[in-house]
Amino acid sequence: MRTFAIVPVKRFDRSKSRLGTILSLDERRKLSELLLVNTVRTLEQSNAISSTIIVTSESSAEEIVGTTRAEFLKLDNDNGVNAALLLADKYSSQNGADATLVIPQDIPLLSATDIDNLCSRAEQLARCIVICPSIRYDGTNALLRKPPQLMKTLYDKDSFNSHIRAAVKINVPIRFFLSGRMMKDLDSIEDIRILMKEQVLNLPLAFLKSTL
């Protein structure tokens, strides 16, 4: 199964705005850069991922992860994550992907083992989604679709339940993947409190522990 990972990336100067009370704009930008590097490096360690695609209008993203094998789809305008993913879906289908795995850039505990295990849930199915929720069961922290253009993404409010409803509506098999690591994203001050309890010391968490 050829699975393309898709990482949608916001403009760094617009990301992590909910952390503005404890981190400066420069610190939030640096944190976003480190999260992206950590995510791409982890995806490259996965045996299940054939290619990693970064879709973004952020001009500096390619330079930041320039030492990796990630491919870039450059957006002229930032029209939201769902519009960006439509472009990535089309690219993936045209380049031989059997499935795509959408991974946000802000999952600091992401592991290659979890990615491999999630992807394995889809191997024996011709069409399906495999989904991992956020820790509050409202967001979507990983979404595998097989084939890539099986259904549109719905990364707005309550995306986890929106994706499930959309899959049910078109009678698509749903597989759930629950991982404590993958379910913890970094978007709010409460998320930081949770992550600071972890013993892992990767790039983004080391930066936070040295900054706060």
Rank of each mutant, 00 (worst) to 15 (best):
residue 148 P to C: 13
residue 156 D to I: 05
residue 177 F to R: 00
residue 183 M to E: 04
residue 155 Y to Q: 14
residue 129 I to A: 04
residue 159 S to E: 04
residue 181 R to Q: 02
residue 138 D to L: 12
residue 138 D to M: 13
residue 110 L to G: 08
residue 140 T to V: 12
residue 138 D to C: 10
residue 112 A to P: 02
residue 128 C to D: 10
residue 153 T to D: 05
residue 203 L to T: 03
residue 139 G to Y: 05
residue 146 K to N: 13
residue 191 D to T: 11
residue 164 I to G: 01
residue 123 E to F: 07
residue 124 Q to N: 09
residue 191 D to F: 06
residue 201 L to T: 11
residue 169 K to R: 14
residue 178 L to W: 03
residue 185 D to E: 14
residue 130 V to T: 06
residue 162 S to P: 02
residue 174 I to A: 11
residue 117 N to Y: 02
residue 194 I to P: 02
residue 121 R to P: 00
residue 202 N to C: 04
residue 134 S to G: 15
residue 108 P to M: 06
residue 178 L to Q: 02
residue 195 L to S: 09
residue 116 D to L: 06
residue 189 I to T: 12
residue 160 F to V: 00
residue 161 N to I: 00
residue 112 A to E: 05
residue 136 R to Q: 07
residue 205 L to V: 03
residue 147 P to Q: 10
residue 146 K to P: 07
residue 109 L to G: 04
residue 180 G to T: 03
residue 148 P to D: 13
residue 192 I to H: 10
residue 163 H to E: 07
residue 144 L to S: 09
residue 179 S to Q: 09
residue 160 F to I: 02
residue 193 R to H: 13
residue 187 D to M: 07
residue 123 E to N: 10
residue 107 I to K: 01
residue 168 V to E: 15
residue 173 P to Q: 14
residue 123 E to Y: 02
residue 144 L to V: 12
residue 177 F to D: 03
residue 193 R to M: 10
residue 150 L to D: 12
residue 199 Q to T: 13
residue 119 C to R: 12
residue 165 R to V: 13
residue 144 L to G: 07
residue 127 R to S: 15
residue 110 L to R: 05
residue 112 A to C: 05
residue 186 L to A: 02
residue 123 E to G: 00
residue 132 C to D: 01
residue 160 F to G: 00
residue 134 S to K: 08
residue 109 L to E: 04
residue 191 D to L: 05
residue 179 S to P: 03
residue 121 R to K: 14
residue 161 N to H: 06
residue 146 K to T: 11
residue 157 K to F: 13
residue 158 D to F: 05
residue 175 R to E: 14
residue 148 P to F: 05
residue 121 R to H: 13
residue 181 R to T: 07
residue 185 D to V: 04
residue 197 K to V: 06
residue 107 I to E: 00
residue 107 I to W: 00
residue 172 V to Y: 04
residue 159 S to M: 04
residue 172 V to S: 06
residue 190 E to Q: 08
residue 144 L to A: 08
residue 159 S to D: 09
residue 118 L to I: 11
residue 174 I to N: 10
residue 151 M to D: 09
residue 134 S to D: 15
residue 200 V to C: 07
residue 144 L to N: 06
residue 148 P to H: 14
residue 158 D to E: 08
residue 192 I to W: 11
residue 182 M to W: 01
residue 113 T to W: 00
residue 161 N to P: 00
residue 169 K to H: 10
residue 205 L to P: 04
residue 177 F to Y: 13
residue 180 G to Q: 01
residue 161 N to S: 03
residue 183 M to D: 00
residue 122 A to V: 02
residue 135 I to C: 09
residue 142 A to N: 12
residue 155 Y to A: 13
residue 144 L to H: 07
residue 191 D to W: 13
residue 144 L to K: 04
residue 114 D to N: 03
residue 173 P to F: 07
residue 135 I to P: 01
residue 179 S to V: 09
residue 114 D to S: 03
residue 127 R to E: 14
residue 137 Y to Q: 15
residue 128 C to Y: 08
residue 166 A to V: 11
residue 183 M to S: 05
residue 115 I to Q: 12
residue 139 G to S: 15
residue 121 R to Q: 12
residue 184 K to R: 15
residue 151 M to N: 11
residue 132 C to V: 08
residue 191 D to Q: 11
residue 123 E to S: 08
residue 115 I to P: 07
residue 163 H to T: 01
residue 186 L to R: 00
residue 196 M to C: 01
residue 167 A to D: 14
